[in-house]
Amino acid sequence: MYRYVIQRLLQGIIVLFLVSIATFGILQAAPGNPVETMLGEGATQLTQEDYDRLLQKWGLDKPWYEQYFTWLGNFVTGDFGQSMVRAGVPVHEMVLEAAWPTIQLTSLSLAFAILVALPAGMIAAIRRYSIFDSGIMVWASAGIALPNFWVGLMLIILLALYLGWLPPSGGGDWKHYIMPVFVLAINETAVLARLMRGAMLEVLGQDYITTARAKGLREYVVIVRHAVRNALLPIVTVVGLRMAFLLSGTVVVESIFAWPGIGQLFITSVNRSDYQVVQAIVVLFTVLVIVANIVTDLTYAIIDPRIRLN
């Protein structure tokens, strides 16, 4: 098992390298640079000489591969560099500062999704073809189909503008959490509910369930102890893999709800060509996804003894 983990980690490092070089290349290919961003709307008096000096200051006058290897060299030694737009601020500080709001948002959303989706999927499977089942599945399809920025805006209009129950955006008390957590969770909830339903249906058709019932076990015990436990297997895998989707969802949700997390930092940094920050966030997300995958595989092996990690 250790060998497996080490092997996966090594693969992860290669992935990380490829992702970082691709990100760097894309950023370089996109016109614009952080200097222009900071010059902002008042840059009309700039001379070429001054402009060149600014590029030089940030090493932007060097060829892209040289810039990349400078970055890589620093990164290997644990230095993410400084933001060019928030000049002088170490990137790791910015990312850490933004991490907490995002961790709050994603973990609450995930918890919400699991708490809602699993029972809903279970009930839909047990009461198959009932109105309840159809209702959940229609809702789940909608949850997958509706883009979260649209749902977010509609909710803001309804709950903040028309009803005045919740603040439209920003941080603060618990009321500020409701809409962003819900919106980020919608897609996840829908996916998990559908999956749970499918998994339960499959399990419920298995011989050992029939056996359990034949033994005279109470339906509750059959469902909870025999069916759910087995149905949870694919769910665990998916929850791990869905972390990546959840993180990408924060980019949109955080922008709409003015949530000062990593998603917003990411989009701000892309817009402002703040290479170092974008690079750091991409690397961070990649690491999270790689780790989530490995952890998922390990968890899978632990809860299903039939799986061997070789």
């Binding site: 805006l153 603040p167 955006s169 709409i256 003015a258 989009i267 701000t268």
Partner: peptide, 17 residues
């Protein structure tokens, strides 16, 4: 305050936030 989305800024104005 930083509110990136223009429609949300409008709503913030309309709700008096």
């Amino acid at each position: 305050r930083i509110v990136p989305e223009p429609s949300v800024r409008t709503i913030e104005l309309e709700t008096g936030e």
